[in-house]
Design a protein around this nucleic acid. Sequence first.
DNA 1: TTGAATATTATGTCTATACATATTAATCTG
DNA 2: CAGATTAATATGTATAGACATAATATTCAA
Lengths: 276, 276
Amino acid sequence: MPSVRGRGVTEKATDKGAQCCGTAKLPSLPEYETALECPMTEPQFKSWQSIQDEVLRRIHAREWPPGAVIPNEADLAQEFGCARATVNRALRALAELGLVERRRKAGTRVALHPVSRATVDIPVIRQEVSALGKIYEYRRLSRARAAPPLGLARRFCAEGLIQCLHVTALHLASGEPFVFEDRWINLETAPSADAQDFKALNANEWLLANVPYTHGEIRLAAQAATEAEAMILNARPGAPLFVIERLTWDHVRAVTFARLSYAPGHSIVTQLGAAP
Amino acid sequence: MPSVRGRGVTEKATDKGAQCCGTAKLPSLPEYETALECPMTEPQFKSWQSIQDEVLRRIHAREWPPGAVIPNEADLAQEFGCARATVNRALRALAELGLVERRRKAGTRVALHPVSRATVDIPVIRQEVSALGKIYEYRRLSRARAAPPLGLARRFCAEGLIQCLHVTALHLASGEPFVFEDRWINLETAPSADAQDFKALNANEWLLANVPYTHGEIRLAAQAATEAEAMILNARPGAPLFVIERLTWDHVRAVTFARLSYAPGHSIVTQLGAAP
DNA sequence: TTGAATATTATGTCTATACATATTAATCTG
DNA sequence: CAGATTAATATGTATAGACATAATATTCAA
């Protein structure tokens, strides 16, 4: 018999007899529990999810309007009939979503300007294409050892000249150009890349599997297609392209810089707020 | 005397004398603690942050390479000399970052293709401008009641004709055009918007403060500037503009649709991975 | 009245324990 | 040996209690 969740009392068979709820319970006899089922006081919120939902409901219903300070964890725990840690879990999750703001001593308040915190997943291109139900294909266009252009060298924080591998490639979705990739790999950080020709193997996937990185930076922008990009991507020169630039580091050493130019029409969509 | 953190033993003065670490401790005498300081076995990891750091270190150092299954929570807790809940907290945070994947019974493994999970904060424009150290200014350009164009009506999931408020506005940063806003407000969901002229008051800020929403959708794209946008934003027609479209809902009713066209050169930058 | 010292308070975190749940591995059966 | 049943296991979550920490309120003194 699976335990009933979300409704009813569902007294846990803990070793300690007394719960925070003051009323002493009889040694669990199902019939009695059903009969007693409390004086129909409050619905029981047991999981942190259900508490999150209830808090969200109150925020959306403007019971707790933007800017308002909500009751403290201890009070909510008592109201919901659960442990403070459970309330904490729920409120912490809401704070991560940017819907409430929490400060010690000051308490928790409903965000006045809930920043639209969109979690943008930028997947490996192979999976991005697969998710569209299309067939992924990869074509390396060029590969050369070269010093990076000045602007990039500066972003690599490299003094003087450094050796890089410059790889350009095209990713296709069911035969159509999808993304043009312009990548620089720092050979001082990843010397083993020099042994790869990247003809069949995607540089990004090879790097992920073989060269560690600790952190990075992503830039999303709109840029006009260059002559070369336009030709490769079947676009007209100057067409607005969605561009993602990614720069990754292993501790203090730059690993790689990639500029991904998407074919015209590409966009990124993400959902806002908790699931309804 | 502030307690030492991160190094040393720092035995907590809990009521229960025995910790999970088998060795019985003397009633805390600082000198003894320093003298005993264990047989230099292992550094103590006390906070979930420090455990996260150590796990990250092992992943970056390829001690746990991509795809590898890492020890289970109980074992790690024993190794680190902490409670399982603490290890859980650390690993859960890493899972949210997309760096490890967790499944019950199967365990925790280092992500093979760590999706670049960039958390893009899309702030209220006033704050975005302030953050750039510039002076925010707002100018309403037009306001009219109108039925939305067909495409938008469909996205509003509206049968037949619905009344909307159509507001266009320009947001400026230190006098320079920053964002052109093209907004449709569903008057069936937010009838009180009809009483506002939005001449001085930013529609977004008014909506945030006065009309609740439960969820939404954000789209990031690159689009060519229309004639009108070009004129307003001081750009040439066809220039690539970074565009954010936002559609918000209150339960099942559409609230508002906004299209924000940023002046040329705008980009969004976010950091990847945990802080180094 | 200002400024420093102290108390208060709400969140943040850790612990130990118990139970829930999903999933795989093992075992039993036909 | 196939398929169903059962056991084992790792993560997921709830709880009570204790202490940590940050920030505000209050008190007291110069």
